[in-house]
């Protein structure tokens, strides 16, 4: 992988939780959310300064709603920023994101425990 890309991201977005060697994640999904932003940036969907401004705005809004912003919720804000920018850039509407979220929920419900969860077309009708 291009570690340079990650280094540029952490330099451009100083709030990313990290140690001396780079970003650190508390849970697997946080790394997924990080990787998606990294990839979309490389695709040119947004600049890091644009991202940092949107993320800061998201955090400010969450604080206004009572989020303690102790760092534990950092990647929640990151995820919300991804969803918002994707909607703003016309990649996917909020409605579409909800539709896929519900489909994954349906897929999880019908998947026996211990099996990989996969999305099928019928999950969208349930």
């Amino acid at each position: 992988m291009d570690t340079g890309a990650a280094a540029r991201a952490t330099a451009a977005v100083p709030s990313i939780p990290r140690d001396d060697e780079g970003p650190v994640f508390r849970e697997p999904w946080e790394a997924q959310a990080f990787a998606m932003a990294l990839t979309l940036h490389e695709r040119g969907l947004f600049t890091w300064s644009e991202w940092a401004a949107a993320l800061a705005d998201q955090i400010k809004r969450a604080q206004a709603e009572g989020d303690p912003d102790t760092g534990e919720t950092y990647y929640r804000h990151w995820l919300a920023t991804l969803e918002r920018l994707i909607a703003e850039k016309g990649v996917a509407t909020t409605e579409n994101l909800h539709r896929y979220r519900d489909a994954w929920d349906h897929a999880a419900d019908r998947t026996p425990h211990g099996k990989p969860i996969e999305l099928r077309p019928e999950d969208f009708s349930g």
Binding site: W29, A33, L45, R76, W104
Partner: peptide, 27 residues
């Protein structure tokens, strides 16, 4: 519930994003 799998609300949103971005060729 041991009969089926569960994803947290956050995991569902992450998967939804990844699926859409994959389908649209962004990732």
């Amino acid at each position: 519930d041991h009969d089926h799998s569960e994803l947290s609300e956050t995991e569902l949103r992450v998967r939804a994003l990844e699926t859409i971005l994959t389908e649209k060729g962004y990732v």
